[in-house]
């Protein structure tokens, strides 16, 4: 393609947007609204997943050993557990540490009366998982290891967190799919109207010997520009809103700060900017290419 043809195509794409102002504005506004919702949704999901992830990190499995087990075997079991891919980290808690922790937490000064360690067989590994949904598989494995007497776990927490994660994923995919479909439909409509407005011009182009690409490309440029503008507009709003909400929640509910930790705005936007712009371009491209293929057989 010649350089002046490239610029001509770009110029025609922009002209299409202005020729068809009302519909272009309606498309831009709808895509902006859709991607605004997407952005807000993404920010909420990112934070929720961050919180869930933090909660998951606190979920652990306790591995207790047979009575009278040798230290060498405990070490061997530790090595076996550490090799498992689902294990994020593990701590060894000796019988003495377990007793001290229990005594300090529940008995206080009454614990001084004990001369021997009542939790003699409570040495254990505390195992943290990468993904809480893998807990069941890990427990089955741990229970099969020779020398392991008992494995304690929190089934409820693991199931709840796994369920919440799956729900977030399904809802995200559903909402995003609906928003994308609406946006593509709108762009497609705008481009179809643009084609009907320019029918005369397209006919002339056809008679003069314009290629399919030459006739179609301004409409694809139009679609991509509408998608790009529609995607860029809400990013600024989301940035401002995110900061305001974060400051408000932190100031208003300081007691939540120990429970909830939020994702930094930069971290959210590192993902949101390229994804939103990519979606805008993709929606624009798809909406226009489908329409020109259907309506513009040159």
């Amino acid at each position: 393609m010649r350089i002046n043809t490239f610029f001509y195509t770009l110029k025609q794409g922009f002209r299409n947007i202005f020729r068809n102002k009302l519909f272009s504005l309606a498309s831009i506004a709808t895509i902006a609204a859709c991607l605004f919702l997407f952005g807000i949704f993404y920010a909420v999901v990112a934070n929720f997943q961050h919180i869930v992830k933090n909660a998951e990190e606190g979920v652990s499995v306790w591995v207790f050993f047979d009575e009278g087990i040798e230290d060498v075997r405990i070490q061997q079991i530790g090595d076996m557990i550490a090799k498992r891919p689902e294990v994020a980290k593990m701590d060894f808690i000796s019988a003495e540490e377990a007793w001290e922790s229990f005594r300090d937490e529940y008995l206080g000064e009454y614990g001084d009366g004990f001369t021997e360690n009542p939790l003699e067989n409570s040495a254990n590994y505390q195992v943290y998982l990468n993904d809480v949904s893998m807990q069941s598989a890990l427990v089955t494995y741990l229970e099969s290891i020779e020398g392991v007497r008992m494995v304690n776990r929190s089934e409820l927490v693991a199931t709840t967190l796994t369920g919440v994660n799956a729900l977030i994923a399904y809802v995200s995919v559903g909402i995003i799919a609906i928003l994308l479909a609406v946006s593509i439909f709108l762009i497609s409509n705008t481009v179809a109207i643009g084609i009907s407005v320019r029918k005369e011009e397209i006919n002339i182009m056809k008679y003069i010997g314009a290629t399919d690409f030459f006739v179609r490309s301004p409409f694809v440029v139009e679609g991509i520009m509408i998608g790009l503008i529609g995607a860029a507009m809400p990013l600024g709003f989301i940035y401002a809103i995110y900061n305001v909400v974060l400051t408000y929640v932190t100031d208003r509910f300081p007691q939540l700060s120990s429970l909830l930790s939020f994702v930094a705005v930069e971290e959210v936007f590192n993902v949101l900017v390229p994804v939103s712009l990519g979606l805008g371009v993709g929606i624009g491209f798809l909406g226009s290419i489908v329409t020109v293929r259907r309506h513009l057989r040159v």
Binding site: E201, I204, Y207, I208, G209, A210, T211
Partner: peptide, 17 residues
Amino acid sequence: PKFRRNLGIVFQDFRLL
């Protein structure tokens, strides 16, 4: 398109932009 580039066409209603 390549074929049509060898043709010029004029219509009754001019068909100007």
